[in-house]
C-alpha cells in the first residue's frame, strides 16, 4: 500500500524532473543529457526577442493579477467574515464559481466581451481574466486566516481611538499578513501558469510565456521549450517554499 503510494507520488514528480533534465541536453531533440550538459537552450531563450518579450509580459500580468485579486479578495473576505449579510452563502458561491466552470466556456465568453472593449490587446484584460481564477483561491486562504483573528482585538482598537482604516492598518493586516503573502504567491503562480484563458485573450502584444510555449508543444518540440518551462518553474518555485512555511507546524493559534 505504502509503496504503491510512493510510486504514484514519484510518477507525479517525474514530468517536472524530466523537463528540467532535458533543458540541459546538447541534443536538438528531446533527449536526456548523457555525458555533456549545456546551457545553450537558456542562451537561446534569452537571445530571442520573442521569448524575452513573453517573459516580460508574463511578469507584468502576474503582478497585476496578484494586486487585483489579493486586494479584492481581502476586502471581500473582511466583509463576509466580519459582517452579517443576507445572501452570504450566495455571495460565496458566486465568488467560488469560476473554480468549477469549464475554463473554455469562460474563455469563449471573455473573448466575445473583451473584443468589444478597449482592453483588447492590453495587459489589463489578461490580468482581469487571470484574477477571475485567482480570486477564489486568494479568498479561501484569506478567509481561513481572518477567521482566526479575534474580533475583540479589532473592537479593542476601536475603543482605544482607532478608526476603521487604522484598525485595519495596525491590527487586522499585521495579523493576517502571512495569509496575504501566501495569497499573493498563489495568485502569481496561477497567472504565470494560466494557458486556457490566455489562449483566447492574448494578442501579439500580450503573449505570455505559456502562450509562446503552446504552439511549440503541439508541433515542433525542441529542448528550448524545456528551458522555457524551467524558467517558469524557477519563477513559481518560491511560492512552494512559502506554502511550506505557511503549513509549518505551529504551537497555538494566537
Amino acid at each position: 500500500m505504502k509503496r504503491l503510494a510512493y510510486l504514484v507520488l514519484g510518477l507525479l514528480l517525474t514530468p517536472m524532473a524530466l523537463s528540467i533534465l532535458v533543458s540541459f541536453t546538447p541534443s536538438r531533440y528531446l533527449e536526456l543529457p548523457r555525458d555533456e550538459w549545456t546551457l545553450a537552450w537558456y542562451r537561446q531563450f534569452f537571445g530571442s526577442p520573442v521569448w524575452v518579450q513573453a517573459l516580460g509580459n508574463s511578469l507584468v500580468i502576474a503582478a497585476l493579477t496578484a494586486a487585483f485579486s489579493v486586494t479584492s479578495a481581502l476586502a471581500t473576505a473582511m466583509a463576509l467574515v466580519r459582517h452579517h449579510f443576507r445572501w452570504k452563502a450566495a455571495w460565496e458561491g458566486a465568488l467560488l464559481l469560476p473554480m468549477v466552470l469549464p475554463s473554455v466556456a469562460l474563455a469563449a465568453g471573455m473573448l466575445a466581451v473583451v473584443r468589444l472593449t478597449p482592453l483588447w490587446g492590453n495587459h489589463l484584460s489578461l490580468a482581469f481574466a487571470h484574477s477571475v481564477l485567482a480570486i477564489p483561491v486568494a479568498y479561501l486562504v484569506l478567509r481561513a486566516s481572518l477567521k482566526q483573528v479575534d474580533p475583540n482585538l479589532e473592537a479593542a482598537a476601536r475603543g482605544l481611538g482607532a478608526g476603521p482604516w487604522q484598525v485595519f492598518r495596525f491590527v487586522t493586516l499585521p495579523l493576517v499578513i502571512p495569509a496575504v503573502l501566501a495569497a499573493t504567491l498563489f495568485a502569481l503562480v496561477i497567472s504565470l501558469n494560466e494557458i486556457t484563458l490566455t489562449l483566447f485573450l492574448a494578442t501579439r502584444y500580450t503573449e505570455t510565456l505559456p502562450r509562446v510555449i503552446w504552439p511549440n508543444l503541439r508541433f515542433a518540440i525542441t529542448p528550448l521549450v524545456a528551458a522555457a518551462s524551467v524558467i517558469l518553474l524557477a519563477l513559481t518555485l518560491p511560492a512552494l517554499v512559502a506554502a511550506g512555511w505557511w503549513l509549518r507546524p505551529r504551537r497555538g493559534n494566537r
Binding site: S19, L232, T236
Partner: peptide
C-alpha cells in the same frame, strides 16, 4: 506549482 505545460510535456 509547476507549469501545466511543463507537466504535460513530461507526461
Amino acid at each position: 506549482f509547476t507549469n501545466i505545460l511543463v507537466f504535460v510535456y513530461g507526461v
